[in-house]
Design a protein around this nucleic acid. Structure first.
Lengths: 184, 184
DNA sequence: CAAGGCATGTAAATCGTTACATGATTTA
DNA sequence: TAAATCATGTAACGATTTACATGCCTTG
């Protein structure tokens, strides 16, 4: 169901195809929402049937028709209603990395250390991507589309990701030290 | 598949029932892994069929037989193999709260502020639970079971949750200020 | 006396991933 | 010439949630 709202959110920016939506999911929401084309296409079909979207087919040579989706007033209403819902939960998410670590007592010190060091490396690389590429991408998008109000929230979420990653990095550094010194 | 490893991880501590496992998932891993009984029972059955577990049925009056599961050597090998896998990904998780906020530009200032304030309240409450109850629960468990080595990791993960929550709180406070001052 | 804990499950539905299928054009 | 981009999908499988079903015992 949530995928529906993600798609409505993007279609509220303007008409586009399923393929376009996939690219947007991959470049902007990927860290907190993503989906495969094989999930997006049927979902769009259902939303059209439900009256949340309309389609225009644009014939193309050598490729399938381009199906350009438009959000309807009903679709906009459904989106706004969802967006207005109170955020009254702290969401438990699923994180296999933490599950690993939770049972890591069963492993020997060296294996644990190499796992922690690998995570540390990956998160440092991710942080620099968020601080450089993602930040630039958001500024470009604001400039090109003129979505200043929306841009405030995009940037806020980017900073959230950066802060969370910094926290992870500091924690991993401490964890490595602790395992090195306190684990036999 | 990951649920299997969570169950193996707990059964590696000692024999127990599906009902027991559900309670453990609810009290210790709930923030990074959880499952319903309707998923746990069939999974245990499958794991027994696969030779990762053995069962002993203990008849009870007025209740269904208690089915006590034991991890086998093969189960232990499967668990250790999974635990040893390199943690070579930064996991994208799904977070409807961030998705909300990503599209919050479509909402008016007051609705956004009340949503952010609600999240702030919830996370402050969660942090105090992690710092008091969860911390106490972990120390009790270490004392009662004597799992000192495992306890190091439980405590590490608890601190991770606390740090991430602190980061969220600081970020929400900033976000509220920014929305108050910079959004019309 | 109602609610919750104990203890097991099944059935249906939804959500999500992976694999398969087509076929032209562009880029490395 | 192989791979990526464009552009659509279907099919099969696996993971997860929600609803339903039973029934005793304990606690408030």
């Amino acid at each position: 169901m949530t995928l529906q709202y993600a798609l409505l959110g993007f279609l509220n920016y303007g008409p586009m195809t399923g393929y376009d939506l996939k690219k947007l999911l991959d470049t902007s929401t990927q860290m907190f929402w993503h989906a495969e084309l094989s999930q997006i296409y049927p979902q769009l079909k259902k939303m059209e049937k439900d009256g949340l979207l309309t389609v225009i087919c644009e014939p193309q040579a050598g490729k399938p028709d381009k199906k350009i989706y438009n959000i309807t007033n009903q679709g906009r209403a459904v989106l706004l209603q969802w967006l207005s819902e109170p955020l009254d939960e702290v969401l438990p998410d699923k994180d296999p990395v933490l599950l690993h670590l939770f049972f890591a007592g069963a492993l020997n010190k060296q294996v644990i250390l190499s796992q922690l060091r690998l995570q540390l490396e990956l998160r440092r690389a991710y942080l620099s991507r968020v601080e450089v590429e993602v930040a630039g991408f958001i500024q470009d998008t604001i400039r090109v589309t003129g979505q200043k109000r929306e841009g405030i929230f995009w940037e806020l979420i980017r900073r959230f990701g950066a802060e969370q990653t910094r926290t992870s990095i500091a924690w991993l550094e401490e964890a490595i030290q602790l395992v090195e010194s306190e684990l036999s």
